[in-house]
Computed example of a mutant assay.
Amino acid sequence: MSKVGILTHSFADAYNGRLDRIFGGGLERYIFNLCGVIREMGAEPEVHQLSFQGDFDRAVEGIRVKGYACTHSVRETFGRMSREAEGRLIYSSQMWTMLDYRPGSLGICHGINWDEPRIDGAPKEAVRQAIQHALSELTMIVTVDSHFLTYCRSACRYDDREKVRLIPNAVDTDIFAPAGERANYGELRVLFPRRISVERGIVPMMLAADRLLDAYPQAVIEFAGETIGGDPLCEAFRIWLDRHPEQDRLLHRVYPFGQVAEAYRRADIAVIPSVFSEGTSYACLEALSCGIPVVASQVGGLNDLILNGYNGLLVHPGEQELADAIGRLIEDADLRLRMGARARETALAFGEDEWRAKWRAVLTTFLAHTHAAV
């Protein structure tokens, strides 16, 4: 059986030393789903990832995962992965870094992560050069949203228009389905289904939560996302939760992949307030599929999913606009219902069957050219 190596910075939870589980982020879920498609094609996937826990080699959810101690630069560590991985290679992250790609390999861009306005021009030019290098060296780059495609067309030079292939992220609309009538006992639940990190907008969300809890006594706010042990922002988040005067209306829970739909079914409003580095958000798609109106920031792939005033509200990624938009939905039950119905309709256009079919088409060609592998 032929092998396909997927190279990435994260899959097993090396952040928290929990190598027996997959870290609960969108990148990791994408890789897990892609491994399923690779197996459907008759090949065996293996994941190769950066590790700050030293080298490791183990099975996680039935997938062989090898960790490579990142004792040198990312480029050097990815170079070691490329040399040691067997079979064809898919580079599933770090495209913004100048890497030494194995000839005949694929790349995946999960969203632009250099769209922070405060980053100076020189680092952004270095990213452009790294992307140009990837376009020159890789057989194809799959992008999960239209923004990377537009970036490549506007900032880079390449002759083959098929070099960058758009395959938007998808959602299982059977698993993520509306809950029907909810017994909420007078509460109204606002869900933040994201990792606790700067780019995912945790700071404006915490500040907005302060305003909302003060203004709406029926509001309960749930944070459903991973934390990283030792991270200063995650520690500040925990302190904020523990010492908040309304802590009985603040919840934090980390859901395994198979249980995350429960969080959406209990929610009335979902909030995706990313500040930068956002692709076609799984969390946004899942909320839409469950028939929940979404308040989202005007960042990255969220603009591909939310039509302002139709299936949700788009806002500038700041706490005041965020709190105002959430408050508008809290106060207007009819608006929540109308947007929720349209949200479900939107999600049906992003079903997993089409995503799998598009990836099978890419992999059919990719796996047929085994002579290109080293």
Rank of each mutant, 00 (worst) to 15 (best):
S2A: 00
G5Y: 14
L7G: 12
H9F: 13
A12D: 07
I31L: 12
F32Y: 07
V37N: 05
E40H: 12
E40T: 10
G42S: 03
E46I: 14
E46Q: 14
V47I: 13
Q49L: 08
R58P: 15
G62V: 10
R64Y: 02
Y68F: 14
R75N: 07
T77C: 09
T77D: 03
F78C: 04
L89A: 00
Q94Y: 07
D100V: 06
Y101C: 02
R102W: 05
I108Y: 03
I108R: 02
I112E: 00
D115P: 15
R118P: 14
E125Q: 12
R128C: 07
A134S: 15
V142G: 08
T143W: 06
S146N: 13
T150C: 13
R153K: 15
C156S: 03
Y158M: 04
D159S: 10
K163C: 00
V171F: 08
T173Y: 15
I175G: 14
A179V: 06
A183C: 11
Y185I: 08
R189F: 15
P193W: 01
R194W: 04
V198E: 05
R200N: 13
M206I: 06
L207N: 05
L213Y: 14
D214N: 08
T227G: 06
G229D: 10
P232L: 00
P232S: 00
A236V: 04
R238M: 02
I239F: 11
I239V: 09
W240Q: 02
R249E: 05
R249T: 06
L251F: 13
L251W: 12
H252M: 04
H252C: 03
Y264C: 01
R266I: 04
D268F: 10
A270E: 01
E278K: 15
S281L: 11
A283C: 15
C284G: 11
S289W: 13
I292A: 02
I292R: 05
P293F: 05
V294N: 01
V295D: 01
S297E: 00
S297L: 05
S297M: 03
Q298P: 13
V299F: 04
G301C: 03
N303S: 10
D304Q: 08
D304F: 08
L305Q: 04
I306D: 02
L307D: 07
L322E: 03
A323K: 13
I330C: 11
L335C: 03
R336L: 09
G340M: 01
R344V: 03
R344L: 09
A347M: 06
L348K: 12
G351P: 15
R356T: 08
R360E: 13
R360Y: 01
A361I: 14
T365R: 15
H369M: 14
H371W: 14
